[in-house]
Design a protein around this nucleic acid. Structure first.
Lengths: 243, 243
DNA sequence: CAGGACAGAATTGTATACAATTCCAGCAAG
DNA sequence: CTTGCTGGAATTGTATACAATTCTGTCCTG
């Protein structure tokens, strides 16, 4: 599902620019985000390097990035790092969602300040996306991946439309960290997704109306509710798949 | 001039844990933030490593971190990175300050909702800090570093007092990036600092009065005015001190 | 004199060797 | 049976060598 650049041939000559840290990063991130690397698990540079067929140098770069983005934490050692896959906690989910609520709330506030015609176009798109979101989530066997994508698309639509580059950068820095929890949400709480769809409708209408306060509040409510609903089931997902 | 940890003896035995990337990071960040490394200047790993007496490995780590935090950007090359000190632009300043305005504005709003006794204590502290701020900035030869610190202290006082952990985390993520522009402000616009002090007074009074709207507005005004004043002089600071 | 090609310098990307620290198991002593 | 110690294994931190790419200045040609 990671719509990334096509892979180059598996053959790697030493010193060739075939194995960039970007790839290591993407691969590791994908494994963590999808839960295939158990939260709390140790990450050993050497293992990753061997598994991905590169040396420790690019792995180190990727790990540093993952660390700063919060996907990887350090076990509290004195001198050395000892990276771990960041655990999933109720606390973390709540705080992360609150921050997303703040950022996307600001974006929605600005979206409500767009021109009437822009708002109308935005409303149409949001409504269309939300309809699809409802439809897919109500299928007998919902495609969780697709559901997540649509939720993502919905929020990204008004953020991209209204946020300045700096707010956008902040959004891009924070939002991906919520992905782990979002995926958990659509997987474990498929029953509650209808509520999210309803909240999305409120957001769309508030933006169309041009009411900045209402738009901001609607977005914040959406995220805070999600955090609350998620809170109750989050601790249950302890150790999961490894590689 | 750099108020950093005392240097260890220049002699380093290979492999010793004497030169951590954290130190390289702090050093470089300090140089960038204080303008001693010219915006737009190239950063050469080898040079930094030599200058700081370490190998390229820890330097690379520090650069990656600085890159992600926005202090360092890459010149648009095809295959290689070529890191540059992030330039200072009017656009960037305006957006950054408006985000800070939003975050600290929210904090001020919440501060206005504290108990009367808390607000009174807060007001006393803010006033005291602001008096010192005025006093230092009006010296014949203002100590820019001290002026900046006092401005920082002022804002941090009410943010810490009122912001929840989520808002605080957001604040900590964003605010440091504004430091470069803040320092520019106190250096280049020392004449206008009196205006800032006046605005600080308005903030303090609004919080004491418990008027949430007024408190939020006062903070936002303070930042937006600063952005405007800064805008006019920001492009002038092209190449500055190098090392 | 202008413009382009080429050689060499500069710089970053990667791999790897070695140092230092932490972890862990096994054993001995209480 | 528990506890503490010791030695080796595992793992990360740092330095450095080499490969690949980009940049720069010079010289040749039109």
């Amino acid at each position: 599902m990671d719509g990334l650049a096509a892979m180059r041939p598996a053959v790697r000559r030493a010193g060739k620019r075939t194995a960039r840290p970007e790839q290591v990063y993407q691969k590791l991130r994908s494994l963590i985000v999808r839960g295939q690397l158990a939260p709390g698990a140790r990450i050993i540079e050497t293992d990753v390097a061997a598994r991905l067929g590169v040396s420790r140098t690019p792995v180190r770069g990727a790990l540093q990035r993952l660390h700063q983005e919060g996907y990887v934490v350090e076990s509290p050692r004195l001198q050395q790092s000892r990276p771990l896959v960041a655990p999933l906690t109720q606390e973390d989910a709540r705080e992360l969602f609150s921050i997303v609520a703040e950022i996307e709330g600001l974006a929605a506030r600005e979206a409500a300040g767009l021109s009437a015609s822009d708002r109308e176009a935005l409303f149409k798109d949001l409504t269309r996306i939300n309809e699809e979101f409802k439809r897919v989530s109500q299928a007998r066997i919902p495609d969780h991946n697709r559901v997540w994508e649509l939720d993502e698309t919905f929020h990204r639509r008004y953020v991209d439309a209204a946020a300045g580059p700096r707010l956008l950068a902040l959004h891009d820095a924070v939002k991906p960290q919520a992905e782990r929890y979002e995926r958990l949400y659509v997987s474990l709480l498929s029953r509650d997704i209808g509520l999210s769809a309803t909240e999305h409708g409120v957001i769309a209408k508030a933006i169309r109306s041009g009411n900045a306060d209402a738009a901001q509040f609607a977005v914040q409510t959406n995220w805070r509710n999600a955090a609350t609903r998620l809170g109750s089931v989050i601790e249950s997902v302890g150790e999961r798949g490894s590689w």
